[in-house]
């Protein structure tokens, strides 16, 4: 059911039936290292090249997700996936392998919540009984795609973010589990004139503020109704900005705001302003946050995954970065 202009409230009781996460070596050493189902101690993940490694990570996250729900690939009705590579090839290859009807999605780093929102909507409307959502990112494939060769010695500024190596998968269905999917707020593309690809936190913060503010206005809730309001990858630069932007709009999220890009690494790890990438919000949400909700430590979380919709060509042509944020509300089922 549509509430307001941007928010969907699911009519049925929808659950995150199971989740699966996989992460690379640096993420494994971070504070959430133990929350991932699978970690790799090498960026190559036993493969010949980075692209194959990213596919292995996504495949592994999905296999953990299905295994936990005791489902086969043939039981799944729709597979929604995305990643950061050109034409989302990682997802395409995984979809080729698993032979589940496939909707490829791209929302840059917001893809995690984009796939979850749409997957939940398909289950809610009855077009699917089981929707599998997955995203992945890999530090080295993203470096090659968006920046310089991995071993190039050009220094990066302090505002740059470090792409998370990892993947997150979630199975949405009406089968009860401890975590419920309640609502989603679909973001508008916002571009406030930041053109520096090494400062995506500043670029994405207005998009996150726009979506979160719309969510509060349309649901009539306030920040105190949430135990956590999580942004995807605003990093240490964008996080204070989004708090300030929302404070000016009358929403004080200071006490409940967290950023996945800051949660996944400890401050002493060499990641500049923090983590980014599709897997950043997915691995944190489907790992740590889902387990916190399942155990009832927290009851209601708003996850606003942020995406910088850029490619290297438009940056070289001196365009500014269009950004989007999609938010999903997850609740603890509270022993139901």
């Amino acid at each position: 059911m549509k509430i307001g202009k941007q928010t969907w409230r699911y009519q049925n009781k929808l659950y995150l039936t199971s989740t699966g996460t996989a992460a690379g070596p640096l993420e494994a050493k971070g504070p959430l290292g133990s929350s991932f189902d699978k970690t790799y101690d090498d960026l190559h993940c036993g493969e010949d090249n980075w692209e194959l490694a990213e596919r292995t990570i996504m495949r592994e996250a999905i296999s953990f997700c299905l295994q936990k729900a005791n489902k086969q690939e043939s039981d799944i009705d729709v597979f929604l996936a995305g990643d950061l590579l050109n034409q989302t090839v990682t997802s395409n290859f995984i979809a080729k392998e698993n032979q589940i009807p496939f909707l490829g999605m791209f929302g840059a780093c917001s893809t995690s919540m984009e796939t979850l929102a749409v997957g939940a909507e398909l289950v809610d409307s009855g077009f699917a009984n089981y929707a599998l959502c997955a995203v992945s990112s890999h530090n080295a494939t993203a470096e090659r795609q968006f920046r310089y060769p991995t071993e190039y010695g050009g220094p990066k500024p302090k505002t740059a973010t470090y792409t998370v190596t990892g993947a997150g998968a979630a199975l949405v269905s009406k089968d009860p589990s401890p975590v419920m999917v309640k609502e989603a707020t679909i973001g508008k593309v916002v571009d406030w004139g930041i053109g520096d690809a090494n400062d995506m936190g500043s670029a994405m913060a207005p998009a996150a503020a726009d979506t979160i503010a719309a969510h509060f206005q349309e649901t009539g809730r306030t920040p105190t109704d949430y135990d956590m309001i999580v942004t995807g990858d605003l990093s240490s630069v964008g996080s204070p900005i989004v708090k300030q932007l929302l404070w000016e709009k009358g929403f004080n999220i200071d006490n409940v705001h967290h950023d996945c890009g800051l949660m996944i690494y400890s401050p002493d790890q060499p990641v500049f302003a923090g983590g980014s990438g599709c897997a950043c919000s997915a691995a944190v949400t489907f790992g740590y946050i889902a387990s916190q909700l399942a155990s009832g430590v927290i009851n209601r979380v708003l996850v606003a995954a942020t995406g910088a919709l850029l490619n290297p060509t438009i940056i070289q042509q001196k365009e500014t970065i269009p950004c989007v944020a999609h938010a999903v509300v997850l609740e603890s089922a509270g022993g139901q």
């Binding site: 302090k158 505002t159 004139g193 500043s202 900005i241």
Partner: peptide, 22 residues
């Protein structure tokens, strides 16, 4: 109205949030 919620001057106003290179 407010300072940072201003699309036109955002690029300039956001500078105070960005760490400067030394």
């Amino acid at each position: 109205m407010s300072q940072l919620n201003n699309q036109k001057d955002y690029k300039k106003n956001a500078k105070s949030y960005q760490p400067k290179p030394n």
